[in-house]
Design a protein around this nucleic acid. Structure first.
Lengths: 185, 185
DNA sequence: GTCTATATCAAGATAGAC
DNA sequence: GTCTATCTTGATATAGAC
């Protein structure tokens, strides 16, 4: 009986969960291997270093948001109100089921600014989030005001996720989305 | 010539700066000792473990906020408007000059929820922040609404600090305070 | 109070057998 | 693709001299 093959994606998914719950530096290659049912040396067949796993984890989540959430802002088959409603619903669905909060928000605060690779990926994730929100808002607001509102709501969302994670309570989180929707209505 | 005596508080101040900039787990006892002009073994004369330094660092900042910021909310010599204005000014002053953002916010996202000592201290820091803000708001709003608004502004402040730290830019941060003040005016 | 020296352990990473 | 075994480094922490 052949042993189970572990894919890169599987390792990333386990790593992401551990990074979110316990932090990047506080997660070891042995922790990751354990979660995958492997021994730590085996991980190096799939990734050349822990840093590569970290960076690929950030890119993996960033890509998910691009494809499943940010893209909603540019859909031409939906009204502006439908776009913001769907955008908020998908964001809420994600973070309400995301144990440990937002990977990129967490690492934004954990990782030193000298880690340029990580910081660039994180900055682009947030910039594209802001851009997508601002694109929806621009139908009702000036360009400058749209960007300002988008920045405010991304910040508010991250703050709300921080509090939700800290208090193990989601009740206050959802109000953030309703406030963004109210801006379009 | 006697060597310089290093105080506990000096070590804490250096540790706090390093924890904020590089993270708690990514800061070693050697890093802390270097910053203090000591060798790592010497730190153990002042603190029994790294965990003690971490917890004392959280308490040190929490105490600063209690004594210099939260207390403003309960001052009877000031009008309600003056209270919120001073509260916001002191908060802004602190975070605009705080390299690396908010220690307790950073560690809230970095440290595993299994670290109960750290998490409790962080939760109380935020709860007391919310309580102080809600106390000011209660003159103009119901108790429930005051707590809701206070929670929202603490979250928004933390999100704004996250973005300020990530982008090395303080421009958007100050608007948060003005919005809280507008709630009282 | 700080130093030198060291103990102990866990981390990231590699080589080669199966 | 995963394993055993090992290397090397850096981490927390301690003992005892000055």
């Amino acid at each position: 009986m052949a042993r189970k093959k572990t894919s890169r994606e599987e390792i990333l998914k386990h790593s992401i969960k551990l990074f979110k719950l316990n932090g990047y530096y506080n997660t070891s290659m042995a922790n990751i291997a354990d979660a995958c049912g492997l021994i730590k040396g085996s991980i190096y067949h799939h990734f050349k270093s822990k840093e590569e796993i970290g960076l690929e984890s950030l890119k993996y989540i960033h890509k998910y948001f691009e494809e499943n959430i940010y893209s909603i802002a540019y859909r031409k088959d939906l009204s502006n109100l439908k776009r913001i409603e769907l955008f908020v619903k998908k964001t809420d669905d994600y973070f309400l089921h995301s144990e440990g909060g937002c990977l990129l928000g967490n690492l934004a605060l954990e990782v030193s600014s000298e880690n340029i690779l990580f910081k660039d990926e994180i900055r682009n994730y947030f910039l594209n989030w802001e851009k997508a929100l601002a694109h929806i808002l621009q139908v009702n607001y000036s360009e400058g005001k749209s960007i300002e509102l988008a920045k405010e709501y991304v910040a508010l969302t991250q703050g709300a996720i921080m509090m939700m994670t800290l208090y193990n309570s989601s009740e206050s989180y959802l109000k953030v989305g309703q406030k963004i929707i109210a801006l379009i209505k």
